[in-house]
Design a protein around this nucleic acid. Structure first.
Lengths: 257, 257
DNA sequence: ATTTTAATGATTGAATATGCTTGTTTGTTG
DNA sequence: CAACAAACAAGCATATTCAATCATTAAAAT
């Protein structure tokens, strides 16, 4: 067998099991453990496998919600500041619609234990509130998008069409002059339904999102009532957003609004 | 067993109980207490567990649903046997509807990684499959019942009315001559909708459920195509069920069907 | 055909994981 | 407050796994 073919088979074995022990792999491929080690080095280099003592994890296309592993410490601090500022907009008794980004997840963490009605299409966010006796939790159904654990698609949209909430908090992947963007077409459809279901739209985004667009256009700038960002946003964008009638909240500063 | 896999199992054990004693964990994982201590150090470092004298609390993002504390070790073994037998009824490519009991949760654990379409109203079950690239996951929306993390009520029922699945696996709280029972009226309504949506109904129950009824009547005995129980079921009930036309599967025996 | 290159399998010392033991800390009871 | 038991952290010995090296074999190039 050729080396490339063997590596392909190796990766397939690892993927199908999620985890595999090195001696087993050596046995099944009929090569020495040394060779398997070397192959795994290559696969780890390419990012599709993650080695541990005694074995290897699959780390390719369908990992365990990689979405949340990727948060770099630096941006994560920003996200937490933004989340804290956004959480201040929530009052006890509110009915709140949360979507499934990392920043909205941080907002959710800060709201656990408060007296609220939470509607969400995000599995991680739902987990936060599922055991919380103080919060009423309503889950949006639908096809669950594996990468992020978020329900999207027609079922979610139809359920949203019949709901009415006080506020919704949405995260976005990009912002430019044309408005807000996200990376998935179905997701954007569901987020548009969320905006229609809410009296007040709050968008959370860190400053790196400005100037970049993403696959799918969600809505124009002025569709958001509030935009919560970190304090590295350029003055250019500050005036642009204010001009568009968006209520700009800058996290990490005492005086804003 | 390898270290990483063991830690995963350890965390799952701690999560499912909310709290666990160190000697118990060592026993179940078949490793020394020292090793468990060291593993818990890692888990505490990562923030998903909180150690105390004599044991460990779950501290991660997912819910500490009180529902899952109740499984006594003795009955838990039964449940696992039943789950294993029920999982044999599932074929690759099946579309499967799972409700939210502890036994159906165990069935779900055995099905992770298989090529299936899973529809569920249970948050814990959904978590099992959310990161599994091989499974399509469809979540039923609705009001989430805090005790068990299960979506019930009109939203879930309406969504079910428009779905069609090959098989459904339901758990019950009681069985008597009149049929199957569960403890919550809304839950029973949703389970009835599940039965209507499925071509084949599989009920899982341990032998302690026989002779007891519960708050809400779900359906008569013959509404189930298969009933999977442990081998402590009385011969009385065996004949009664067979007479009702139920396909009785006894877990823990080689010959049955 | 001969040299060169790459790949494989075996070997070895280093790193890691595990279980046991020991002394210390913590919590309980009289 | 003292005495006791349970639980813990640290240290040590053993076993496993790893990375690096080397010899051999297979393939490629000259």
């Amino acid at each position: 067998m050729l080396a490339e073919e063997r590596r392909t088979r190796l990766l397939e074995l690892v993927r199908s099991r999620g985890f595999a022990a090195l001696p087993d792999l050596a046995g099944e491929l009929q090569v020495s453990e040394s060779t398997v080690r070397r192959d795994l080095e290559v696969l780890e280099e390419s990012g599709s496998a993650k080695r541990t003592h005694g074995g290897v994890f699959y780390a390719g296309a369908s990992p365990k919600l990689p979405h949340f592993d990727e948060r770099q410490p630096a941006q994560w601090d920003k996200k937490r500041l933004i989340a804290a500022r956004a959480a201040q907009l929530v009052e006890d008794g509110d009915t709140l619609l949360l979507d499934g980004g990392t920043t909205t997840y941080e907002v959710g963490r800060l709201l656990v234990g408060r007296s609220l009605q939470i509607v969400t299409n995000s599995l991680p966010v739902a987990n936060l509130f599922a055991s919380d006796g103080k919060t009423d939790l309503i889950l949006l159904g639908g096809y669950v998008y594996p990468r992020t654990g978020v329900s999207i698609g027609p079922y979610a949209n139809e359920m949203l069409a019949r709901l009415n909430v006080r506020k919704t908090i949405l995260s976005v992947a990009g912002i430019n002059d044309r408005g807000y963007f996200n990376s998935n077409l179905l997701l954007v459809g569901t987020e548009q339904a969320m905006m229609n279901a809410a009296e007040e739209v709050i968008v959370v985004a860190d400053s790196t999102k400005f100037g970049h667009q993403s696959l799918a256009h969600m809505c124009p700038l002025d569709a958001a009532d509030y935009l919560v960002v970190d304090n590295e946003i350029s003055s250019d964008w500050r005036s642009k957003l204010t001009a568009a009638g968006v209520n700009l909240l800058v996290a990490g500063t005492t005086d804003n609004g």
